[in-house]
Design a protein around this nucleic acid. Structure first.
Lengths: 199, 199, 199, 199
DNA sequence: AATGAATGAGGCTTCATTCAT
DNA sequence: CATGAATGAAGCCTCATTCAT
């Protein structure tokens, strides 16, 4: 599915419809939104979902992959930004905005999925490493933070606000700001645990 | 548990067994761990679960209630601590240690549940308010942080580490430290969004 | 249980309490009222129900037996009545009043139960035969009716009114009257099917 | 079935299979025949039952609706019959034949179910009113009988025979004849209770 | 002898997935 | 290719019955 067949015009359209519908439905109902609901929202038959994604998990993985790739694109552009500190914040902002509303933490589920997601994740780590290095050089970020730290903290703002029934849609910005302040060198205290390794 | 019947000798034991088993199972498999699995882990029959908790949701609520009450107890003691900043950190540490390993964020689901949990939550907010006031006076915490902020951020360290398949059990301390650094006055930047109100 | 042990004073009381409570509960909720509900209504523990009646079916059988015996007593007295036609109507009235409100047609279920009920049923048939013979002689009842017919038609008035959600409590009298008119010789048409035999 | 979708070729067949199987199973085991048994008898999977009838109650309602509609069709034709008295008897015969063997008195349960059944019931009352008026004019039926009486008495013949373990399949005709004789003007005695109102 | 805790079979229902149309 | 019908495993829950207290 990486680059097998070019995929016919309307089949490609259905695929996009489905990814969008699934993302919406998962956002609205959580990870156990039913395939039937997704199909209905996409305006296609239930069977069509399985023609495009052999498994519900595959569908989830595809969404995750899409998101990581989009983030990677953003990240790559930001590597050339003039203000590295602002660039890193921008990256985290982009990440949070993506998951708006509800925390789509299928990341874990998807982590068990093969090749593509893992690969995209690895690439993301490299990109973040780049952003981080530059920000650190600039003194915008404390020294004891690694790319894995960033990946993990990335989900926090959305998760945190998901506990509030009627949170205003941009509330995550508040918590991203707090966390980002925690990443600055000013007032940084030594960290009690070493950074984790593999993502 | 409010103040109904004393509960017979062994029934009480089973109730505790079940609460523990359920917490474990939820931690291991997420919120949709099956009642059957919980019963099996507790070493009782499936029916026994329902004798103690009329509904799966009731079981969840009971766990949540237990935890909130425990936290409230810790919090109340910490109100008398000599170092208010350390006390707040201590409180957050206790909270995170409770959820060890995996993020038990049924809090939201349970929030919709009746009287007792809501009430305990309200009390927790008041307790945190107390801790926060004192820490703020001492200059250990920035001024623009509210008790609701704390409640929301409380879950973050565990959630964050839950994305790592084989995270070391104490890794959450690292992220709690980072977040707590974000709560300090040093290096604090103005927050882009106002604090949310009702929990 | 026929006449084994005299049954201690309060045990006998509990037995009556249970029979009454069960009859009420069955009348109120239908045949699948739970044993727990019955016990609660009787004000005893669930276990006590099973001490008195080994099985839910046994409990039902006991109720049925009680009722049949009561009817038999009424029937025996009516054998000496001066107006045989009125006596038969009286008997049917007594039968219907017993089942007031809801049709307790456990008769069938109970029919599968051994000795006692069967025996009481047989006796009832004989009693009805007596009532019927005398009424027939008097010309109050058509000739082609048998005791089994009476036994079967006995349940009809209550059953019929049970289909009305808010039937007035004495409505069954209306249908008993209609059916009884159908048993009179005046305007009787030949019956298309022979009378059934064994009850 | 109201007027939604045409229903695909084989789906329609399964629907009929299910209705038939359900009626059989209910007749054989009473109203709490299990959905699993019904599915097995229909030769389909358990899930298929729920594809066609969202709920066990819906299935029951569908059966009831089918039957009432069929009866209504019969009744409408009989409105044009030459002998009104015979027509009414014919109607009651059709009703009883439908429920052959065992009394399917889900009518009450279904009465609580929405629109369609209620509506069909109302129509049935009107039809019976028509049959009754004409029979009364002809002097074939006593004056104090209402359509609701007929609806209620309709179930009696089958119910009555259901208490006999091995009743011959046409035995209900005997009791219908007796009851119908009770509806004739000859030998009618005044009724002790007024007719009920709403069905 | 009574109580109520424990049990597990069985009921209804949902849902991912397969398959005939 | 798309559709939606069919399937059966699995989930939550109820309840008659047994058993320790």
């Amino acid at each position: 599915m990486t680059s097998t067949r070019p995929l016919r015009s309307d089949a490609a359209r259905n695929r996009q419809l489905l990814l969008a519908a699934a993302a919406d439905e998962f956002a609205a109902q959580g990870l156990d939104a039913s395939v039937a609901d997704i199909a209905r929202r996409a305006g296609v038959g239930k069977g069509t979902v399985f023609r495009h994604f052999a498994t519900k998990d595959d569908l989830i993985a595809a969404i995750v992959l899409d998101r990581i790739n989009a983030l990677n694109a953003v990240g790559d552009e930001l590597l050339d930004a003039t203000d590295p500190g602002a660039a890193l914040l921008e990256f985290l902002t982009a990440a949070a905005r993506q998951r708006q509303q509800r925390d789509l933490s299928f990341l874990r589920q998807a982590g068990e999925l093969d090749a593509e997601v893992t690969q995209a994740n690895t690439k993301m780590l490299r990109t973040i490493d780049g952003l981080l290095d530059r920000a650190r050089e600039q003194g915008a970020v404390r020294a004891d933070i690694t790319a894995v730290d960033i990946v993990l903290l990335m989900c926090a703002p959305n998760h945190v606000t998901s506990h509030l029934p009627d949170a205003p849609p941009e509330l995550w910005q508040r918590y991203l700001a707090i966390i980002f302040d925690g990443l600055r060198p000013q007032g940084a205290h030594p960290l009690p645990q070493p950074p984790p390794t593999a993502p």
